[in-house]
């Protein structure tokens, strides 16, 4: 089991970069982080996640790596309570988000999910226009004034670099965008609900290299204000953008630490084997 101490490396960049900075996106919660204690997840009586303990540092990119089937995606889903939809999933343990256990008795699932922007493996635009896609989140969460909605949509589309590409067709269906554009749209849509965390579930695996690069650049830009947790299938991506790495194998955390240390000086044999490509 990994000690949490070594993983508490605090990131020290708390300053904002000024460019294209959305007005509404202002909350700066100081104690923003995720802490996981004794998390066990069972799916149909199979032990998928085994006694996980860790803290995810704020305002940085944490990449979860590991062979397929190791429980990466399951773990990600426990963070925004998407397992609620599947009664065959049993969860025990505590997940503290901003010092509140999201599996506690009086937690509102909607609030938890609103805190977590999810970027799925394949972009899934809602069956509406580009504009409506981004406007959807703010609207359901109570922003009704047209001006405010317009402003929000434009800001986030600008933020993900999509505005200039689509400004003359924001009222057309989102499904006509290229897949890379769709993924950036989904990111804008997720950001528009003003989350504090961004979860990415192999968010670039369906994209071409150029679109991947754009998304990765966005993640790096975003970590100034958000805590980002990515499940990734490519070690190179983790190397490129992660500040911290979590290596999982068969539902357990094998090793975790700052990226450089993790790749240059892995402590466990299993990690070394995985990094050298003995298994995947």
């Amino acid at each position: 089991m990994i000690s949490t101490n070594q993983f508490l490396a605090k990131s020290d960049h708390n300053s904002f970069i000024g460019m294209n900075e959305p007005i509404i996106l202002k909350k700066l919660v100081t104690n923003q982080s995720i802490r996981i204690e004794n998390l066990d997840v069972y799916i149909e009586n199979q032990h998928i996640l085994k006694d996980m303990n860790l803290t995810i540092p704020e305002k940085s990119i944490t990449c979860i790596i590991g062979p397929s089937g190791c429980g990466k995606s399951t773990f990600l889903k426990t963070l925004n309570r998407m397992h609620d939809e599947s009664p065959e999933v049993k969860i025990s343990g505590k997940v503290f988000v901003d010092d509140e256990n999201i599996y506690g008795p009086h937690v509102n699932v909607i609030d938890t999910r609103k805190k977590m922007g999810l970027l799925a493996q394949r972009p899934c635009p809602l069956p509406m226009s580009i504009f409506e896609n981004v406007a959807y989140g703010p609207r359901i969460h109570g922003i009704k004034k047209r001006k405010a909605v317009n402003q929000t949509v434009i800001q986030y589309l600008q933020y993900v670099g999509l505005w200039d590409e689509v400004r003359d067709r924001v009222r057309t269906s989102a499904t006509r965008l290229s897949i890379g554009q769709q993924q950036r749209l989904c990111l804008a849509r997720g950001l528009a609900i003003e989350p504090e965390y961004i979860l990415g579930d192999e968010a670039t695996s369906a994209l071409d290299p150029l679109s991947t690069k754009k998304i990765e650049e966005l993640f790096v830009k975003l970590k100034e204000k958000y805590t980002i947790i990515l499940v990734t299938h490519t070690l190179r991506q983790a190397k490129r953008i992660a500040d911290h790495i979590i290596f999982m194998y068969l539902g357990k955390i094998i090793e975790a630490g700052p990226t450089e240390e993790f790749f240059n000086n892995p402590k466990k044999q299993l990690t070394r084997d995985y990094l050298s490509g003995s298994f995947s």
Partner: peptide
């Protein structure tokens, strides 16, 4: 995918 996307937006 679509239901999950919507739920994760907090719908």
């Amino acid at each position: 995918e679509l239901p999950d996307a919507l739920l994760s937006l907090g719908a």
